[in-house]
Design a protein around this nucleic acid. Structure first.
Ligand code: ZN
Ligand code: ZN
Ligand code: ZN
Ligand code: ZN
Lengths: 130, 130
DNA sequence: GAGCAAATGAAAACATTTTTCAATTACGAG
DNA sequence: CTCGTAATTGAAAAATGTTTTCATTTGCTC
């Protein structure tokens, strides 16, 4: 999903395609797993309040995802399903595609829980920090 | 691991067993997955700063774990290995023991990543909220 | 182009966590 | 048991992060 497609879905949802929203979406699309600070740095022309509101809006529409990996929220474009490797030394976040929950292995029936989504994070040391 | 054992390990680490630390540990042991607010409510006699510092200390010693499930940090005694079911409607957190990463299924060798720990969260609707 | 609801952003409010520092206290040595 | 001392506590202030307010601006439809 590229920047244009995201803006298209925004419009489709009845929201305005403002220059500020273009900027924020471009910033998010530039790199996955960015913090608020990093996103803001890529949007010098957009007020902080608008960045917060745009993240909230896009996330509500399911176009981006908020990550809780410790050390403050991070954001990513909601594209493919994947999970995260978090380096506890340098903080770098990378992805892996093999989903441990994929084959419906996990039986939650005895919990009476209706699963909607899930997240898997592996913490450790990246190849650089070892 | 009961309250006494945690305090023992604290002492063993060269830290003092103060009445405030007893209170905080007792509060944490009373229920898993509590927020700061809930823990504080169980420690009326302990200053906020001390609660923060004690959580930091215990977590540094690996005696408790901090959970990032969205909606602010939660804390639990570090006992058995388990993962979490988070209800997106009422916010209730429950546990399940079957670990999807258990059999070493996950091959991270091509990432050159040294895994230390992991977390798995399943989001959805609990039996009450469905 | 006019009209209007939606959107923006500066400032203020609010919430949460950390720092500071003077007073207190647990605990080992004597 | 008492003393000395470094560790600990907590009130206040500072720092940090996020949300609300509201007057002004603007994208979009007709
Ligand atoms: Zn990712
Ligand atoms: Zn998955
Ligand atoms: Zn738990
Ligand atoms: Zn596990």
């Amino acid at each position: 999903m590229d920047v244009g497609a995201v803006m298209g879905k925004l419009r489709g949802g009845g929201f305005k395609a403002t220059p500020q929203r273009w900027e924020v979406v471009r910033a998010i699309a530039a790199e996955q797993h960015q913090s608020m600070e990093e996103i803001r740095a890529r949007c010098p022309g957009v007020g902080m309040v608008t960045v917060y509101r745009t993240l909230e809006l896009l996330s509500g529409l399911g176009l981006i995802r908020r990550l809780d990996l410790g050390g403050g929220p991070r954001w990513e474009l909601a594209e493919d399903h994947h999970h995260h490797l978090v380096c506890e030394s340098c903080g770098d976040v990378t992805e892996f595609d093999l989903c441990p929950l994929d084959p419906g292995l996990l039986d939650l029936s005895d919990h009476g829980f209706e699963a909607r989504s899930h997240s898997v994070e592996v913490y450790g040391r990246c190849s650089v920090c070892q």
